[in-house]
Write a protein that binds this DNA or RNA. Structure first.
Lengths: 145, 145
DNA sequence: TAATAGACTACTATTTCCATAGACTTTATT
DNA sequence: AATAAAGTCTATGGAAATAGTAGTCTATTA
């Protein structure tokens, strides 16, 4: 299951993606609009900012805005920031590899091989879906391939 | 991430799948062989048995064996027993649907639509992979399609 | 009838997640 | 210069999920 952190992150990015024409959006406004606990959202935006996806400005008239085009922000990258590995077992993770406690011989492990397939199937979707795509899916059912 | 419960379940099923020629296997032996805490394994086997995947026999000479052919036990079913939903958001789950707390309008939710795609990609692998397939993958890299 | 082995329920410990608090820094405005 | 607005950063607390343990009960075999 996705953590709330990740859901909030995606919702925030979507909201900021829709806000590109306007001046930066303050945490408080974003929190109210998206019904996200303010202080929790604060931390999440921080992470996204430190990873380079958001631009922030302090002081009066400050706030948050996207630091990249919404079509260049892919869900896979967001999930990795907020939830960590995409794979369902650590030994099948590309970016967060860890040996499984339970595993004797990883090379011949059938579970691992299976969940590498699952990982690849998941990655195929997540590496192809940007924040712009998520926004596009909201209004109508038409996909732009 | 898969829970340990699920990993243990798969390992147990794989071990029992390799044991079909022999008399039923006792929990204690299975626990030792697969390095799974005995009492925890006991609960897991119970669940799998109550779901119809295992046959058990009490008393001396008793133990556990598969109640179906290993090629008819699919990972998707095991995961649903031990971990619940396959989808990463409850509103995208086929068997464990729940409304998302955060969601206003589910019908137009772009996040939901995306994670339905992820779910389908994951299901495609998990509904096609049986315990027999996992065993087959162990020994060599050859897949029988 | 004693020993073996699973069935079932209750409980405890550990970890992860979610959220809140508060003090600090930067920027704009007056 | 002072004040207010707004983000930065670290620490901490509580709740829920996960992992594991204990003990009693029931069935089967020898």
């Amino acid at each position: 299951m996705l953590s709330k952190k990740t859901k909030y992150a995606i919702k925030a990015l979507v909201a900021l993606g829709k806000n590109v024409q306007n001046p930066p959006m303050q945490i408080v406004r974003l929190a109210e609009q998206e019904m996200i606990p303010r202080k929790f959202l604060e931390q999440i935006l921080l992470d996204l900012r430190n990873a380079g996806y958001l631009y922030s400005k302090k002081g009066a008239g400050g706030g948050y805005s996207l630091n990249k085009d919404a079509k260049d922000i892919y869900l896979v990258d967001i999930l990795r920031i907020t939830d960590g590995p995409i794979a369902m077992v650590p030994c099948a993770s590309l970016k967060f590899y860890r040996k499984c406690d339970e595993c004797h011989d990883e090379v011949t492990c059938g579970i691992r091989k299976t969940f590498i397939e699952v990982r690849d199937a998941t990655l195929k979707v997540l590496t192809q879906t940007s924040i712009a795509d998520v926004i596009a899916k909201e209004s109508n059912g038409i996909l732009m391939d």
